[in-house]
Amino acid sequence: MTATAPVVAAAAPKMDPLHHFHVTKYLDFDYLGIDVAISNSVLWMWIAAGLVLLFFHLAFKNPRIVPGRLQSLGEAGYLFIRGIVDDIVGEKGRPFFPYIFTLFFFILFCNLAGLIPGSFTVTSQLIVTATFSLTIVGFSFAYGFYLHGTHYFKFFVPTGVPVLLMPLMIPIEIISFLARPVSLAVRLFANMTAGHTMLAVMFLYVVTLPWWGAWVPFGFTVIFTGVEIFIGFIQAYIFTILTCVYINDSIHMH
């Protein structure tokens, strides 16, 4: 053990299971005092966005009435989001469809691109998910206020509750509203971080165990990568659904 210790110690930075989440700035830019550096996080946002565009470009390069495989997949994606928006928000949700469509595919491709070895998972950064969730919740609040005026504050007053309970219920409603961006952001961030950390730890076992033991964690990583793809879909879906729910709340109240 003493003989191998220096070797392992030298390799330690590479064996950090959280290494994957390190943001490294490639180019440091400053615009009017705002940090607009290009980092691995930004690069992979662009790669994910580029993959979204590439996917839809390939799917609808030559659109046909009777669709091919890729076109069917693209249409399924479109109709999936359209279905979510129509089901949850309804007719008044139509103007938000492009935003929700973009949100879903951006998050989905960020999640999936993070599974490419050597890549970076943008959605494992709490600041990124928080940016989205705060924007969404902030927008839904502003939009509700814009639609209903001061009437919108009735949103925090639950119906069918005795007046006596109001001092208790109103704070609860306000807290649950404030918890929305937190839960939305943390859910996605925690799922992505946990999954990728788990994979990293397993790969660490693969390289440190002798060959006769390494196949166990390696087999686990193979299965878990499949699970991670599924989680990538599920989390993008949940994020989208909740966005629709919040927008619906601001339109129709509840």
Binding site: L18, F21, H22, V23, K25, F29, I34, D35, V36, A37, I38, S39, S41, V42, M45, W46, A49, T102, L103, F106, V122, S124, Q125, L126, I127, V128, T131, F132, T135, F189, T193
Partner: peptide, 19 residues
């Protein structure tokens, strides 16, 4: 590494811009 504040600002800006 996610809680390192020095990498927050550019990610906020680029998240919104990229979106």
């Amino acid at each position: 590494p996610q809680f390192e504040p020095s990498v927050f600002q550019h990610q906020i800006v680029w998240s919104i811009a990229s979106f």
